[in-house]
Simulated scan of single mutants.
Amino acid sequence: MRFLAGRLIRLAILLPLVAGSAFTLLSVSPVDPVRAYVGDRMNRVGPEQQALIAAKWGLDQPPLVQFGRWAGNLLQGDFGTSMIFSQPVAEVLIDRAGTSLALMTLSWLLAGAIGFALGIVAGALEGSWIDRAIRTYCFALASAPTFWMGILFLMLFSVALGWAPFCCAGPPGVVAADVTLADRLAHLALPALTLSLLGIAQVTLHTRDKVREVMASDYATLAFAQGLRRLPVAMRHGLRNAALPALTLQFAHLGELFGGSILAETVFAYPGLGQATVLAGTRSDAPLLLGIALFASVFVFTGNLIADILHHALDPRQRRLADAVR
């Protein structure tokens, strides 16, 4: 309980800092909120109308007053109203969070499953051409920008081969209620694959190191002396030893996953929180950007908290350390 209470106190301190930092960056941005709100019609909007727009959204007030008003409303459960979507920020978050969570969940599962399998094979066959090929693949993935890989995948699988849709979360022009599960998965596949690439590299390399340690242990040497091959030994002894670090790394990876989703959703025009973040930043929609910043903070905090809980609960050394401290 003390561990959880300490983490919650950190979250309570973190959220105001995140909100204040995000609002400060937005307030010093060169983007004019009124001009961004009006868009191409700016030449047809007179000074009086611009003043009315600024007054409607509270943009005529000093930044501290704007932030104080937003914080006061937040304490009452009101996240404000999005200037871009003209609807409550809470509704925008709910509508788009489901789409983004579907993308991030599939990417998270792909990165964990593929990365763990490649790590087991690379660690078991250390020094072989398979190990070298997997490591080269991982180093190349780790250094490749997400948006660049997304563009390459679009050019290859959507434009050249025509195997996957090139945008959106469903067929354009089709009402969301009429979009089938098969259509959703087809539109989800390419963004999820793009987003999972960095996670695959991290999990693979981390798992490989853990399996290498197992393969150099005394009980692995005994298994080799009994005639067992390297891959069966790695599957029998390496899975258990590498599973916890890989799972912990997966949950700790949620922060990078959310950041990568912004780029992936932008490249594939995927209507999730990532795309909304870009719109909120470029069009100076303070209530929406602050709402997304708080959501992202809670999301990343939850992932790190789960990783810490798993590490403490499943690792005997951590339990003994905690008992000694108490």
Score class of each variant (00 low, 15 high):
149 M>Q: 05
119 G>K: 12
118 L>F: 15
172 P>L: 11
228 L>K: 10
70 W>Q: 05
143 S>M: 07
99 T>K: 05
263 L>T: 03
18 V>H: 03
29 S>L: 05
120 I>E: 07
147 F>D: 06
141 L>Q: 12
53 I>V: 07
2 R>G: 04
94 I>W: 11
77 G>A: 11
210 K>T: 13
119 G>V: 04
80 G>C: 13
44 R>Q: 09
217 S>R: 13
196 S>E: 02
29 S>I: 00
238 G>Y: 12
249 L>A: 15
324 A>D: 06
22 A>D: 01
126 E>V: 06
12 A>R: 14
60 D>Y: 03
125 L>D: 12
80 G>V: 04
286 A>V: 03
157 F>S: 05
211 V>F: 13
146 T>D: 06
23 F>E: 04
288 L>Q: 01
230 R>K: 15
61 Q>H: 02
316 P>Q: 10
266 T>K: 04
305 L>Y: 15
269 A>M: 01
131 D>P: 03
183 D>S: 08
114 I>K: 04
178 D>H: 10
126 E>T: 02
299 F>S: 00
302 T>P: 00
7 R>E: 07
151 I>E: 08
292 I>N: 03
141 L>F: 14
28 V>I: 13
224 F>K: 14
95 D>Y: 07
131 D>C: 12
257 L>R: 05
141 L>H: 13
63 P>F: 10
192 A>E: 08
311 H>Y: 13
19 A>H: 07
23 F>N: 04
83 M>F: 12
293 A>P: 06
145 P>D: 00
80 G>M: 12
210 K>A: 12
95 D>M: 05
46 G>D: 15
314 L>P: 04
152 L>G: 07
83 M>H: 07
118 L>V: 09
323 D>Y: 14
251 F>P: 00
22 A>I: 07
33 P>E: 02
289 L>S: 08
130 I>Q: 06
34 V>K: 03
67 F>Q: 06
290 L>E: 09
15 L>Q: 09
45 V>F: 14
216 A>N: 10
109 L>F: 05
154 L>Y: 15
311 H>L: 10
171 P>F: 09
149 M>F: 00
292 I>S: 00
227 G>Y: 09
32 D>H: 12
173 G>R: 10
269 A>F: 00
44 R>M: 15
7 R>M: 02
220 A>D: 14
113 A>F: 11
125 L>S: 02
164 A>I: 10
77 G>E: 09
118 L>K: 09
139 F>S: 13
104 M>T: 01
237 H>E: 14
56 K>V: 03
119 G>H: 14
237 H>L: 13
